[in-house]
Design a protein around this nucleic acid. Structure first.
Length: 271
DNA sequence: CCTTACCGGACGCTTACCTCA
DNA sequence: GTTGAGGTAAGCGTCCGGTAA
């Protein structure tokens, strides 16, 4: 949905709801929880003194048209209690005044109402500095910072929100890179081990290998299947409930790591 | 004590604007 | 001068915790 600057100047754009807007509540399946836990225990002593004021418009104008905010604006659900709170919180008239006359004339502001604000280097530096100290702001800090920077508290708030998002994005990228390296290392390790297994298997098949081994003196070959029989007491796998005759097993020193143990019964049942 | 409604803050997603190559 | 990509301020919807009735 597009609006011309004229439409926006008339204050129409922000009272429209975008029905085609996707539901953004779907949590990311790859959420890594990389951000410090947000401080939700902040007190509400100076709760949103600009509540209901459309920050994309001049605060002065917003004061005048306090009932015509966007559907999402909480001013639409204002209650008596709420009004009290706003009074208690004390809307800083001076701040609003400052915001109204910040650097430009009213006419210029009206023209640039929808122009995108570009923060100055100094402002950015101060915000960065502040972000390093706390990546979230309580209302008092927000207020103070806004005052210091000559911005509206909402702008400070938005900057912090976007800054947190950037941090998270960056951190996610770093973590992705790390996981990628881990994956590559593990793949390489796996390749190496597979190769080693192959070499050991090849070695096992060579006659010299058996020459070096002590002969299994207690083993007997099963005549039917050519498997080597061992006394049941010497094996770990023959823990059957009923006593069994010595059965034939495949004597494979590597079998333990290559294939799971099977009861002798199953081994012999194929004959 | 429990429930409910309301509010504010935070976040994710998105848009719109600006800058620069 | 035009254009596309990237950066970023800001809007909107939603969730969640705190609080008062």
């Amino acid at each position: 949905m597009m609006f011309t600057e004229k439409d926006q100047d008339l204050g129409l754009s922000l009272s429209m709801s975008f029905s085609e807007k996707k539901n953004s509540s779907n949590p990311s399946s790859l959420y890594l929880n990389l951000m410090p836990s947000s401080d939700r225990s902040l007190g509400g002593e100076t709760r949103s003194f600009l509540k209901g004021i459309d920050v994309n418009r001049l605060p002065c104008a917003a004061e005048e048209e306090v009932g015509v905010s966007s559907p999402n604006s909480t001013i639409s659900s204002i209650s008596g209690k709420r009004s009290e709170r706003e009074n208690d919180g004390g809307i800083d008239e001076l701040d609003i005044e400052r915001a109204c006359s910040r650097g430009t004339s009213d006419e210029e502001d009206a023209e640039n109402a929808r122009k995108k604000l570009r923060l100055s280097k100094d402002q950015s530096a101060i915000l960065e500095e502040s972000f390093k100290e706390h990546n979230t702001l309580n209302p008092k800090q927000k207020q103070a910072l806004a005052k210091r920077l000559g911005l509206r508290p909402r702008q400070v708030e938005v900057w912090f929100q976007n800054r947190r998002a950037r941090t998270k994005l960056k951190q996610t990228e770093v973590d992705c890179e790390y996981l990628k390296r881990c994956y590559e290392n593990l793949t390489e390790e796996n390749r190496r081990l597979q190769k080693e297994v192959q070499e050991l298997r090849a070695l096992k098949l060579s006659p010299q290998f058996y020459m070096q081994m002590t002969p299994p003196t207690t083993l007997t070959m099963c005549p039917s299947c050519e498997h080597v029989a061992v006394p049941s007491a010497r094996t770990t796998t023959v823990q059957l409930a009923r006593p069994v005759e010595p059965r034939a097993i495949t004597f494979n020193p590597w079998a333990a790591s290559a294939v799971p143990h099977r009861p002798f019964d199953t081994l012999h049942s194929r004959s």
